[in-house]
Design a protein around this nucleic acid. Sequence first.
DNA 1: ATGGTTGCAAGGCAA
Length: 165
Amino acid sequence: MKIATFNVNGVHGRLPALLRWLAEFRPDVACLQELKAPQEKFPEAALRVAGYGAVWHGQKSWNGVAILARGLKPVESRRGLSGDPDDTHSRYIEALIGDVRVGCLYLPNGNPAPGPKFDYKLRWFERLMKHADALLATAGAVVLAGDYNVIPTDLDVYKARTLAR
DNA sequence: ATGGTTGCAAGGCAA
């Protein structure tokens, strides 16, 4: 099974590129982040024409995640992580594609640090770890894919010197 | 070197 992930930074603005990418690489599963579209404005029909079923968790202007599956509709098993009832960001959706469970995540950027956004990122990490532990305790294959917003090397940074200050 | 870019959505925020 070919599983891919793509931060689209606006699913409408990026839709032509997304469709080309799906046609060229034909992933069985694609995890999308930064839809930047409300739930009711996700381009479900265009993706269906392209051969992909979808589940998604939209949000106006920011965030938003989706899971696409070629030739079938993913069976949603979770949206959002537990542990913070006040968290309104759409950053996690999970679904079964056949017998493989796929979690699609968009981890908070956390900038600027230190500050409340960085604190939120760390708390989100803790919630993800807790959920990952629960997933690993269950039987079956699990994949947690997406944008972790973790940058081990300067190659992962658009402009490392700016971040280093 | 204190600026540089983009998407959403309609001014400024987030990345």
